[in-house]
Each structure stands twice: as structure tokens, then as C-alpha cells.
């Protein structure tokens, strides 16, 4: 276990390094921030001063190593636009995104698992076929279009729910979140549902497939031969086994939801990280882009680690050790 963790951490550092190179090169390729940041009226002297102030006059590899040296000290650079540390900007927006992604994950699990169970247990029922057809729709609809439809129907036509912003923020146990006020809850519903829909569809399909497969196992028949109630067979014997694939996918989905809430956040003007990254891409705010992408890489690494540890908790056959390659 300890060896596993140490190795895993070392691997993570390598992944971070490789990603930093890719991100740095990628961001460099997008465009020259000077063109956007400095007013076109500025004279040559001003331009050069600005370029030097941002450190953009130095060769790329030098910029990269300066970035690395600073990153090692926990400094991922200052935003060109806001002139604030990039990390602080990201952390300021993070709670809003986490709140949105968290709500979406909970929603997709609460909806997805029961529906998937039902469809798996009664595959012939008309309801099950409806659920599966619905899941394909949920799976295939583009998020942006679906979001616009939600706004049109629930905000514009029916006027039931607000369509923009985060709403009122409440404090509970020292945590500030819009989930603690009614107004905030009303604001989170549409974007969260929009974000959850595709995932719920995925979880429905995954759960159903897991149930169908598990039901055929001898140990399920043996459990029934022991005289266990249907509830116990499904709730304990089946569910424990389908948790294994679910945890993997849900883990990755959480990371994906946090990282790629961009579209939903833009449509619903949700003041989260996604909106920040879109804005910084538009303004070619390199440090923010780099810092954001590095944070996301870190997030995936951490979530994958958690999933692996959870694995060994759910499935006793899994031992946390290295596979010799």
C-alpha cells in the first residue's frame, strides 16, 4: 500500500511535468497576448516595455523554466488582465463550479441508479424500454442546445426558474454556498440539471448493463436458493457488484464535470471556473490558462487515486499494488 502510494505520487509528478510542457506549448500556439493586451495606439517603445514587463521577450524555453521554478514555489504566475495571482482567481471561482458539479453528480446518481436498476431488473417492461430510449436522447443532446431549451421553456415561457447567475449565497457551517438559500437553489436547478442529464443517461446505461450481467451469475441464483428476499438479493448482492464499474465512471465523470462545465457555465452565466477559462482564452491571458489546466490535471490525478483506493474498499479481491509491466 505505501509502496503503491509513493510510486503513484512519483508518477503523478511526471504526469504534471509532461502536461505542463504540453499546456505551455499549446497556449503559446494560440496567439500573442500582446496584440490584445496593448492598445493598438501604443508606440513601439511602450509595446516593448510591456512585452518585457510580461516576460514575453525571452525565449519560450526560458519562459517555461521561469514558470517551473515559480510553480515549484506555488506561484503559477499573475494574470495579465487582472494583475492578480492566477491561482487566486481560480480559487475564487472554484466554489461556484464545485457546487454546480457536485449538485449535478448527486442528481445524476439519484436519478441514474434507480432507473438503471429498474431497467435492468425488468428489461421487458415498457417502462424500461422508455427509460433506455430516454437515456439515448439524454446522451445525444448537445449540452449547449439543451441548456438554451431549458432557458427558453423554464425561464422565458413558464417563468418558473431564473436562468442566470448564482443567486443569493448562504453560509452553513462556515461554508458559503448558494445551496443554502432558496434563491440560490432556484438558480442552481437549471444549470445542474443541464449538466447532469448526459451523466444520468450514462449511469442508467451502466447500471442496467451491470445488473443484467450480475443477475446471470451463479452467486445470485445461490443467494436466491438461500431463500433471501428479492430486496436483499438486489440491494446487497447485485448492488455491491455493480458499484465497482460505477465508481470508476463516476470518478472520472466528477473530474470531467468540474473541468468541462465550461459550456453550461457560459450559457447560464454561472460565475465559475469555466467562465474564467473562456474569458482568459478570449483575452489570451496565458498564466490563467496554464494555471487552470494544471489544476485540472491535478484534479484528475487526485480523483483517479481516490477511485483506486475506493476500489480496494469495494472489491476485496483488489490489492493496491503495482502491476509489473
Amino acid at each position: 500500500m505505501t509502496v503503491f502510494m509513493v510510486r503513484r505520487l512519483m508518477q503523478s509528478v511526471v504526469v504534471l511535468l509532461v502536461m505542463s510542457v504540453i499546456v505551455f506549448l499549446g497556449v503559446f500556439a494560440i496567439g500573442n497576448p500582446v496584440d490584445i493586451l496593448i492598445s493598438p495606439d501604443a508606440d513601439q517603445l511602450e509595446r516593448e516595455r510591456a512585452i518585457r514587463a510580461l516576460g514575453l521577450d525571452r525565449p519560450l524555453w526560458e519562459q517555461y523554466f521561469v514558470f517551473l521554478a515559480n510553480a515549484a514555489k506555488g506561484d503559477l504566475g499573475r494574470s495579465f488582465v487582472f494583475n492578480e495571482p492566477a491561482l487566486r482567481l481560480i480559487f475564487e471561482r472554484m466554489p461556484a463550479t464545485l457546487e454546480l458539479a457536485g449538485t449535478a453528480v448527486v442528481l445524476s446518481l439519484v436519478v441514474g441508479i434507480p432507473l438503471g436498476l429498474y431497467a435492468g431488473l425488468k428489461p421487458q417492461a415498457a417502462t424500461s424500454k422508455g427509460i433506455m430510449a430516454g437515456s439515448i436522447v439524454g446522451f445525444s443532446l448537445p449540452t449547449f442546445w439543451q441548456g438554451l431549451m431549458f432557458i427558453m421553456v423554464f425561464a422565458v415561457m413558464l417563468g418558473w426558474l431564473p436562468s442566470t447567475g448564482r443567486g443569493q449565497i448562504g453560509t452553513f457551517l462556515g461554508i458559503r454556498s448558494s445551496l443554502f438559500t432558496l434563491d440560490g437553489l432556484a438558480h442552481v436547478i437549471l444549470p445542474a440539471v443541464n449538466l447532469a442529464l448526459g451523466n444520468a443517461a450514462l449511469i442508467i446505461r451502466l447500471t442496467r448493463a451491470g445488473v443484467r450481467e450480475t443477475l446471470l451469475q451463479d452467486y445470485i441464483k445461490f443467494a436466491r436458493a438461500k431463500g433471501l428476499s428479492h430486496r436483499r438479493v438486489v440491494g446487497v448482492h447485485v448492488l455491491r457488484n455493480i458499484l465497482i464499474p460505477l465508481v470508476t465512471v463516476v470518478g472520472l465523470e466528477i473530474a470531467g464535470l468540474i473541468a468541462f462545465a465550461v459550456v453550461t457555465e457560459s450559457i447560464f452565466a454561472w460565475p465559475g471556473m469555466g467562465k474564467l477559462i473562456i474569458d482568459s482564452i478570449n483575452q489570451l491571458d496565458r498564466p490563467v490558462m496554464v494555471a487552470y489546466l494544471m489544476m485540472i490535471v491535478l484534479l484528475f490525478i487526485v480523483i483517479n487515486l481516490i477511485v483506486d483506493v475506493l476500489y480496494s474498499v469495494i472489491d476485496p479481491r483488489v490489492r493496491l499494488q503495482d502491476v509489473k509491466g
Binding site: Y219, R224, A225, K226, G227, R240, N241, I244, D315
Partner: peptide, 27 residues
């Protein structure tokens, strides 16, 4: 259900498959 496992019990062919792999024996 009340009879199964109580008054009539069954033993299966493949012992590798009849016990649920993720539950302890005592459970």
C-alpha cells in the same frame, strides 16, 4: 422463498462462482 434454503437447500456445481465475491463469508 420461505422453503428455499430453509427446508430445501441447494449446492451448486462451481464453488468458484457460488459465493458472492464482494461479501464476507459471515455476511
Amino acid at each position: 422463498r420461505a422453503i428455499r434454503g430453509n427446508r430445501i437447500a441447494m449446492i451448486f456445481q462451481d464453488p468458484m462462482m457460488t459465493l458472492n465475491p464482494v461479501l464476507r463469508i459471515d455476511t
